[in-house]
Design a protein around this nucleic acid. Structure first.
Length: 488
RNA sequence: CGGGGUGUGGCGCAGCCAGGUAGCGCACCUGCUUUGGGAGCAGGGGGUCGCCGGUUCGAAUCCGGCCACCCCGACCA
């Protein structure tokens, strides 16, 4: 093939233009497409299959920790938002408001939910009256709308899919335990399902959720060294309980305010997966989020193709028996086309099955990443057909572990402790800077202005340390170092 | 909202400077040949040239205005 043809089909190299690369991968791998209205996107079947896998595995974890699902309305009376001062202030700029409906102006405008704390609070107030009603542990799978100035598919769209958990508890200890429990669930999920080792920690006051007392976050490092907030868990104290009268009578017959929590993880996690694992060939999917973990490509023509296709189907059946998601690609395309197509789509393992292989009783196995030759091409290994299916679950697990290790190594290589502003500025250009900070919001703002980096979190793991602020030289806050990075 | 860029078949582009009614590659359809890294040949379908107005015998092309989208900032899961 001519090199011209090739470059036309390949995605924009990541090294050249990360945004261009990202857009190419999302559209060419058929994960999503832009919707007609600004900031909207259509999640295509391949992308939605990833979402369904993510959703199911996360939902299992919610159920295992005692939560139940429910559905709350899309429309919220505007006045509800106003009841919690910080909450309104935080969300006012990105609200979509419905003022007309049924051909008439509404008596009270309705906001399209940007998040559901307020309407959940209103209903919880109605449902909770005794300590016997607590805790209440509800999760919502829905979409929310936040009017974004600069949309990017999966990372920041006007409407996005997510889940939001909302819980109410008798006291702070209970609510804090819940906040941290779900924080752990997110962290574990990110590592064990999305294969992304997260930096976990607490948000600084300036970065906290509007209306929260404490916010915990998992931050992933993308291949360009930028941070992506990938899940947050909030302890809301009694802020919403006081705003919405969520009260209960305790054993002593005293009226008490509930302590509430909320926690959310969105389809942005798909964006995180793309940006954390992808390469110049396209998408790299972790096996537990891959709609097809194995694709089998039968090769040959005429009767030979019939024979290899039949064998491919037998192999696929054996793989399915072991709960491997497998697809036999019987499209009327050349084998080379299929190899490239499935590499672009990030499928972990590819099996080639040709006449020569049938003869030898083997199949040719290649993996998407982690086993390349000098030219960067996936090595091909003949594997006895009889052993392929039985060994696949272990191979998938090993592949997952290798992705985690690779991402971890990348993150470590792009994270550095820095103690002066020059080193800080250089570091955030390509990774995370771990620095002492005074905690002054004005100082945070100055850092962002000059370096475009923001405090991502105060890491949960980390030695106690104090000293001069990396920026202003004032006394450090938090008793430990803060992770700074440019963020998506 | 500031700075940069782009609008021409589904996608990527040329044509515009020197106006004459649209072309290339990919994709698509049909047929034959092919199938171990993006197949070949032949035939074919598909475009109000972002929108509105102006100049002109005639506008994708020149002039004025508007709009949309993308990228980089400010806001954000």
């Amino acid at each position: 093939m001519s090199s011209q043809k090739r470059s036309e089909r390949a995605v924009t190299p990541m090294s050249e233009d990360v945004s261009g690369w990202y857009n190419d991968v999302v559209t060419r791998a058929e994960l999503a497409d832009r919707g007609p209205a600004k900031g909207t996107m259509v999640i295509r079947p391949y992308g939605y299959a990833i979402w369904e896998l993510l959703q199911r595995q996360l939902d299992d974890r919610f159920k295992a920790t005692g939560h139940v699902n429910a559905y709350f309305p899309l429309f919220i009376p505007e006045s509800y938002l106003r009841r919690e001062a910080e909450h309104v202030e935080g969300f006012a700029p990105e609200l979509a408001v419905v003022t007309h409906a049924g051909g008439e102006e509404l008596a009270e405008p309705l906001v399209v939910r940007p998040t559901s704390e307020t309407i959940v609070g209103e209903m919880y107030a109605k449902w909770i009256s005794s300590y016997r009603d607590l805790p209440i542990l509800i999760n919502l799978w829905n979409s929310v709308v936040r009017w974004e100035l600069r949309p990017r598919m999966f990372l920041r769209t006007t409407e996005f899919l997510w889940q939001e958990g909302h819980t109410a508890h008798a006291d702070e200890a209970d609510a804090m335990a819940e906040t941290l429990r779900m924080f752990d669930v997110y962290d574990e999920f990110a590592r064990n399902v999305a294969a992304i080792p997260m930096v976990r920690g607490e948000k600084t006051p300036g970065e906290r959720f509007a209306g929260a007392v404490r916010t915990f976050t998992i931050e992933g490092m993308m291949r360009d060294g930028k941070a992506l907030q990938s899940g947050t868990s909030h302890y809301l104290g009694t802020n919403f309980a006081r705003a919405f009268d969520i009260t209960y009578q305790d054993r002593e017959n005293e009226l008490q305010h509930c302590h509430t929590t909320s926690w959310g993880l969105s389809a942005r996690m798909i964006g995180a997966t793309i940006l954390a694992h992808g390469d110049d060939r396209g998408l790299v999917l972790p096996p537990r989020l891959a709609p097809h973990q194995v694709v089998v490509v039968p090769i040959g023509r005429g009767d030979q193709l019939d024979a290899t296709t039949a064998e491919a189907q037998r192999l696929a059946a054996a793989l399915r028996e072991r709960d491997v998601r497998v697809l036999v690609d019987t499209r009327d395309q050349s084998p080379g086309f299929k190899f490239n197509d499935w590499e672009l789509k990030g499928v972990p393992f590819r099996v080639e099955l040709g006449p020569r292989d049938l003869e030898a009783g083997v199949a040719v196995l290649a993996q998407r990443v982690g086993d390349e030759d000098e030219d960067g091409r996936a090595r091909k290994h003949p594997v006895p057909l009889a052993e392929l299916a039985a060994g696949m679950p272990a191979r998938l697990d090993a592949y997952h572990d290798a992705l985690v290790a690779r991402a971890q190594a990348f993150r470590d290589a792009h994270t550095a402790v820095v103690d002066d502003l020059d080193a800080f500025t250089a570091q955030v250009a390509h990774g995370f800077a771990v620095a002492l900070h005074c905690g002054d919001p004005a100082c945070e703002a100055r850092i962002q202005e000059t370096t475009r980096a923001t405090p991502r979190c105060i890491p949960s793991e980390g030695d106690e340390e104090s000293g001069p602020c990396v920026s202003c030289g004032g006394a450090s806050a938090y008793g430990r170092r803060v992770v700074f990075a440019r963020a998506y």
